[in-house]
Every structure is written in structure tokens, then in C-alpha cells.
Amino acid sequence: MSDIFPRWTNKLPLRLLLGVLIVGSVATAGVTYYFTPKYTRVGYQPIQPVPFPHSVHADQLGLDCRYCHNGVEQSWYSNLPSANTCMNCHNQVLSADPRLALVRDSFQTGQPISWVQIHKTPDYVYFNHSVHVNRGVSCVHCHGPVDKMDEVYHAKSLSMSFCLDCHRDPASKIRPPEEVYNLNWVPPENFAKDKGAKFVHDWKVNASQNCSACHR
């Protein structure tokens, strides 16, 4: 009569354990890499109804962000411009260009252009633009180099850890208020240590880490 358990089964528990460990760590690596906003959101670049290039308007023409997003300093929400704002220039520039047909329609009828929203925090998060931009936090921290983008894409993860990284240490990210809309500003050496810390102290910057600041 042959053995019920042949010899090789002696090593089976060890092999199984090793196999599970390897499969487990590969799966964990995959999940940490893929199941995070750094993967799911970053790079989202929808096709917009009008191929509006920030690179032409903000960089080449040097328009200030607030020419179009004019509510960003007063409001929690950074508005998108209405067609009137575009038509200020495009009644003379490219006034018959087919790419701008939707803008002209919208200007005539008042029906807004349905831009696809790219940055969207979950609805249980309370976010506010004005507190940030009025306190020296630039658009570039949260949106990346928009002025260089032909089409806007989601450049930063905007996850909770992204927000908290800065709320724990605003001094290293903050800049003088007049440079907030200059996305190409490079801090001079030692800026964070000297000036940044001074701003945080003088303006009594209070970047709260309480849950209730962002989840009200």
C-alpha cells in the first residue's frame, strides 16, 4: 500500500506559505500603486466642447487668471468665464473661426457652454478657494502649470494626504500674495525658512488639521 501522503507533501505548507506571501505582496503593491487618486485622477484630461488653450491665453497673451476666473478671490468656488468674457476679444480676433462657433452661439442664446469639470473633490469635502489664494497659496500648488497646458489636465492628486501635507507645514509652500497668480515664480533661496515662516506668523495663518475644517 502506497503512502497516503507522499514525501513531497512535507514541504507543502512551507511552499504554500511562500506562494501566498509572494502573491500577497505583489497584489498589495498593485493596490497601493493603482487604488489611489495619484493613479485614478492624475492625468484626467477630458475633451472639452471648445478646444480652449490656457497656453495661448495665460502664457502667450499673459492674461491674469482673474481676467476669466474673476470670482476666485471672493468665493469658495472658482467660476468659469461666461461667453461674454471670451467675446470681449473674439468679436475681433478669430471672429469667424469654426472652433469658436459654440462660444458665439452661447453669447447669442445665453445657454452656457457645457465645459467638462476636471477637478472635483468629493461632495463631503469642504473646500474654499478664497482662503487659499488670499493667503499666498498659488494655483500652481493644486493645479500644476495650467498656463503651459494646451488642454487642462488633473495634475495633482488632491487627496486628503495632499491637502494635509501642506496644512501641516504651510511655511514651505506659501508665497507673497502678489506672486500667487504668477505660476512661474521661483522662491529665492531660503525663502521658506525666513520669509515663509514670517508670513505664517505675521498673518496668523492657521491651516487647520481638524477634521471639521474640511468635513463640516
Binding site: K38, G43, Y124
Partner: peptide
Amino acid sequence: IAGFQGGKSRKPPIEIFPDMDRQ
């Protein structure tokens, strides 16, 4: 299939645990 982090995509982000993200 899934690519790397930061790759460009035309498709809206997948909300893996859609908890109460969209109310």
C-alpha cells in the same frame, strides 16, 4: 492595460469606493 501613474486619460476617474462622493 492600466498604465502608469500620471498617464493621460480621456475617461473620467474611477471612484473605487464611491462612498458618498457624489450627493
